[in-house]
Simulated scan of single mutants.
Amino acid sequence: MKYLKHKLYGRIFNLFKVFPINKNKITFIVDSGESFKGNLDYIKKEFEKRGTFEFNFFYKDKLSIGAFKDLATSKYIFLNDNFFPIAFMNFKDESVVTQLWHAPGAFKKFGGSVSSEDDRQMLLKISKNTDYLITSSKNIEGFYSEAFQISKDKIKPLGLPRADYYFENHNISDLKEEFCKRYGVGPDKKIILYAPTFRDEEKYNNVFNYLDLNEFNESLGDEYVLALRLHPKIKDFYSGDISSKGKYIDCSGYASEQELLLISDILITDYSSIMIEFAMLNKPIVFFTYDFDSYLNEERGFYFDFKNTVPGPIVYDSSQLIEVIENKDFEERKLSEFVMTQFDEINGEASKRVVDFLLNEGDKNG
């Protein structure tokens, strides 16, 4: 019963195997909110440079007969997140199914590294119907093999397509000016982006119970403004008027996370994979881990030794956090070393490498 809906999806899909594959048809599997779409957008742009292709979007939370037919007749199929019905879909040999995965690098354990035996068996079925899994580095191949229950020969360390964004011609000054106007911030202020992750342990999700905003602003407010970007689930744990906690910008609804990374001067985070992307930009990161012992013992855990690997200082309370920022003691020497463990190449050509691979040696049956 657990996988009944996924099996139904698979059976509907399999009805359309009677139709021939269209070698120029590409389908992207997304949810209706189009979350985690960045990699897909960059792959689409790269294919558009190569010729005339037909692009379709299969919305995994909407049932559409036409979408099933498009999926079944596509030459190239891309995912950027989990989609369990893949386990029950019998793709034609000519189709190429590629998992791009939305998160950069590897840090927090996920998937088959932490799931039940039943879920690992499901991941194994999905991996058998997946031709390629794209990662950012050969160094993390073993972790992804475990997380996806997929053989290493299907893993291709070609890069993170959406990271090509940072190599485009952005006017960062204009982006920051627009941001400051929108939120009423003086243009001379530096931006500290605080992006905490979600915890399964509920009591640690209200970050204002641990970050003293008044103390923070009193010490740092002349030079910096705090921009808070919350995981959607965290807001469920707020109580009362959070604006009374002190002055900050809530940019949780800001459309482009990558734009925020470009205009921010410092990142404060904890265990979020956002730090992997920010580290690429060679800017300071501070790890505010007020619940470190609980997270280490009760949550998912890490693929690396957290304390010896993260590219920045680790602090446990507001006073330590403020002190590190005041003294600019960011341990930036650790940034390049960390980035090298997560990326083989960073040059704005990840999308090109993926599409080159698929159109050449990764293209089954010509």
Rank of each mutant, 00 (worst) to 15 (best):
N169Y: 11
F148E: 04
S243P: 00
E218T: 11
Y248I: 10
P157F: 05
C180N: 05
I242Q: 11
A227N: 03
L228E: 03
I155N: 03
D164E: 10
P284A: 09
F198K: 08
A163T: 15
M280C: 13
L228F: 06
A163G: 15
L220G: 05
D236L: 13
D293H: 10
K233S: 14
I191E: 00
S252F: 09
S239T: 14
D188S: 14
R182T: 04
D174Q: 14
V225W: 01
E277C: 05
Y248L: 14
E215Y: 12
I150G: 00
Y238F: 15
L175C: 03
Y224H: 10
A163S: 15
K233V: 13
P232C: 09
T197V: 07
D222N: 14
I249P: 02
F208E: 08
A279S: 13
D174A: 12
S173I: 09
F179C: 03
K176P: 04
F148S: 05
I274H: 07
L228T: 04
D153R: 11
F148P: 01
Y183S: 01
Q258V: 07
L213R: 05
P157Y: 04
S273H: 08
H170F: 05
D212Y: 00
F198W: 15
E223D: 11
N217I: 07
L211I: 12
L228V: 10
N214Q: 14
K156W: 07
M275W: 04
